[in-house]
């Protein structure tokens, strides 16, 4: 009975934290870099929305920019993009994500990388929001 009550209380706590997360304001847009600073086929490291969240910005081709959290969804190792193979690699446990969508391709990760939405305004690249995804 007590165990059952404790589990129900735990479920309520998760619901409360979920509600808090939904109520939180979206982080403000932040300038990452100038477009000219990012070579085609290259990447840039940045932090968004705060100093504790490392992210990667990748430019696979002239007209495409993709950005993700750099923390692997398995055990938070720093992932490394491999533009030539269209993959993002986690060197810790050989996890692989697709460069296009950040979805897990192979290895231990089960969840996609959080996507950082970016906007190009003139010659400047801005990070505007973080999209957490479970599938």
């Amino acid at each position: 009975m007590l165990i059952s009550s404790a589990f129900s209380a735990g479920q309520f706590w998760i619901l409360f934290k979920n509600w808090q997360r939904n109520q939180a304001a979206a982080p403000p847009a932040q300038k990452i870099a100038n477009l000219a600073d990012i070579p085609v086929g290259g990447m840039l490291l940045f932090r968004y929305p705060n100093e504790h969240e490392p992210c990667i910005l990748v430019r696979p081709d002239e007209n495409t920019l993709v950005a993700y959290s750099q923390k692997c969804t398995h055990l938070s190792c720093a992932v490394i993009p491999n533009v030539a193979e269209n993959k993002i690699v986690c060197p810790c446990h050989q996890g692989y994500f697709s460069l296009d969508e950040g979805r897990p391709l192979a290895g231990p990760p089960q969840h996609p990388l959080p996507r950082i939405h970016v906007e190009v305004q003139g010659d400047e690249v801005f990070a505007t929001s973080v999209e957490l995804r479970s599938i």
């Binding site: 059952s4 589990f7 129900s8 998760i14 939904n22 969840h111 957490l132 479970s134 599938i135």
Partner: peptide, 23 residues
Amino acid sequence: MNSYLGGDSGVPLPALIFSCICL
């Protein structure tokens, strides 16, 4: 907890309802 940490916000409410039914 696993789905919450993965960013899914649609799971906690049904889970709480079912947990309360079990209680």
